[in-house]
Computed example of a mutant assay.
Amino acid sequence: MPADLPRRLAVACGMLMAMALPGGAATCERVDHDGQGYVLCEVGAAQEPALRLWQDGPDGAPLRNFANVRRILGPDEDLSFAMNAGMFHADYRAVGLLVIDGVELSPIVTGASRDNFGMLPNGVFCTGGDRPFVVIETLEFAETRPDCRLASQSGPMLVIAGELHPRFLVDSDSRYIRNGVGVAPDGQTAWFAISSRPVTFHEFGRFFRDGLGVRDALYFDGSISRLYAPAVRRADFGRSMGPIIGLVQPGG
């Protein structure tokens, strides 16, 4: 990896914020790290109120895709970007903790399991509390119960206090399109990323830790990872999703 790549990625992220449109919109951009391509969407503290988390529509049925999310937006609202935001059951409801607008719709799950969600330590992405954004390890979250306007639990953690998850293997042959979220150390910025090609957990974790300099990052999913980002002409369809997170901008 070039020695100045973290600095170049930081500059690129700064450009994203400079390019942000009025009223809370964010611009996503394609970036490279260690030979792998990613789409990176940056959300700053001032944009946190425009970040939304969806599971069900007004009729109580799971939304399942970006087209349905766009249909329920107001006449003066546009979707800046969106991605799947955690693992889900067969009925498309969240596997673990889900908080939307301060209301807990699904409880936290603290036990281990054989799937990726239960590859401990896993964690929670939380917004709108004491800091605009935070990724917290699940057991710590369960003990401290921070206030969250939005929260989604998933797993495994990609980066934990600056270290990669201990079960990630450099020579792993498990590759998927993967997506997740990392938070700046000061909690003022959240980075949502998805790989452009299949990557390993180790490669994806290094992107957040080494490329973006985050100390905590959380995996959302792999086999169904999807992104809607008109700024990079990307709209992934074809698979139904559970929880979906996205940024809403004024429009119409």
Rank of each mutant, 00 (worst) to 15 (best):
P2W: 11
P6Q: 00
R8W: 06
R8I: 14
L9V: 01
L9R: 06
L9F: 03
V11W: 11
G14L: 10
M15S: 09
M15P: 00
L16R: 15
M17E: 14
M17C: 10
A18M: 12
M19R: 13
M19C: 08
M19Q: 13
L21G: 15
L21Q: 12
G23Q: 09
G24Y: 00
A25D: 14
A25Y: 04
C28H: 05
E29R: 12
H33A: 05
H33R: 04
H33S: 13
G35D: 00
Q36H: 10
Q36C: 15
G37T: 02
Y38T: 03
Y38D: 01
E42L: 14
E42D: 09
Q47W: 02
E48H: 03
P49R: 01
R52D: 12
L53G: 00
W54P: 02
W54D: 06
W54V: 03
D56V: 13
G57T: 10
D59Y: 12
L63Y: 06
N65R: 13
F66R: 09
N68C: 09
P75W: 01
P75I: 00
E77A: 13
D78T: 15
F81H: 06
F88T: 05
H89T: 15
H89S: 15
D91R: 11
D91K: 07
Y92I: 04
V95R: 14
G96D: 05
E104T: 15
S106K: 13
P107N: 04
N116K: 12
N116S: 15
M119C: 10
M119I: 05
L120C: 06
L120D: 11
G128W: 09
G129D: 07
I136G: 02
T138D: 07
T138W: 03
F141H: 14
F141P: 11
F141Q: 07
P146T: 04
S152H: 08
Q153M: 06
S154F: 04
G155I: 04
M157T: 05
I160G: 04
I160F: 02
A161C: 07
E163G: 01
V170G: 08
S172G: 06
S174Y: 13
S174H: 13
Y176W: 15
N179Q: 05
G180H: 02
V181R: 06
A190D: 06
W191P: 05
F192Q: 08
I194P: 11
S195I: 04
S196C: 09
P198F: 05
V199R: 14
E203S: 11
F204S: 00
G205K: 01
R206S: 10
F207Y: 12
F207E: 01
F208T: 00
R209H: 01
D210F: 03
G213S: 02
V214W: 01
V214K: 03
D216T: 02
L218Q: 07
Y219N: 09
I224V: 15
S225G: 09
L227H: 01
R233I: 08
R233F: 13
R234Y: 09
A235W: 13
G238E: 01
R239Y: 13
S240V: 09
P243K: 04
P243D: 00
P243Y: 00
P243C: 06
L247H: 08
P250L: 03
